[in-house]
């Protein structure tokens, strides 16, 4: 699992490097473009993800202690948090698109290059991250199914552990995305 997480580091790491270069070249425009983002929505999503990461980690403890009911409850909290995150993201993106800011839109193309790049990176990086959130939910749904089938038990919970690891990675990526996109003033 960790090996897979390394490949994710390369995937997102590459994009962070692209971000770093463009931000350097277009400092002013990145600052301007970032004003369009809603820091409050970003902050709420940060808190949601941090909390869901905690419940995911706790579900392993519950499983180790043989408290399967509690473990399932915690996994459900994690899944619901992921949904809350996606709902926020949906409204955030909808608002942007409503204001005419989406890749290739006439409004966006009329802006300076730096702002086009900023929003391009914003959509690709947060979009890919959102895709990871969905995959994480699928993992946890499988784990719940496997718990019901008796394949994941207090003595054999590697699938739960790996799903949680994946989920923490999603959290880690967001820890960096949030300040880099929402907090440039």
């Amino acid at each position: 699992m960790w090996l897979f997480l390394f490949t994710e580091l390369i995937l997102f790491g590459g994009m962070f490097i692209v971000y770093a270069v463009y931000r350097f070249v277009h400092q002013q425009e990145f600052h301007l473009a970032a004003q369009e983002l809603n820091t409050t929505v970003g902050l709420i999503n940060t808190i949601i993800l941090l909390t869901s990461s905690m419940t995911a980690a706790m579900s392993i403890t519950a499983m180790q202690k043989g408290n399967i009911r509690f473990a399932k409850g915690l996994i459900w909290v994690t899944i619901l948090s992921a949904f809350a995150f996606m709902v926020n993201k949906f409204f955030e993106w909808s608002a942007k698109i409503h204001h005419g800011i989406y890749p290739g839109s006439p409004d966006l193309l009329s802006k300076p290059n730096g702002e086009i790049l900023y929003f391009g990176l914003y959509y690709v990086m947060t979009g890919l991250h959102a895709l990871h959130v969905i995959v994480g939910v699928v993992f946890f749904l499988f784990v719940l199914r496997h718990i019901a089938q008796g394949k994941v038990t207090p003595t054999a919970y590697v699938r739960l552990e790996n799903s949680a690891l994946y989920w923490h990675l999603v959290d880690l990526i967001w820890i960096f995305l949030f300040p880099l996109f929402y907090l440039i003033h």
Partner: peptide, 20 residues
């Protein structure tokens, strides 16, 4: 700002990696 933001993000990552 960016230096501080990245330092704090790294500190948060350290917590997530070590404990979670």
């Amino acid at each position: 700002t960016i230096v501080l933001a990245l330092t704090i993000a790294s500190a948060k990552s350290w917590f997530v990696l070590n404990y979670f």
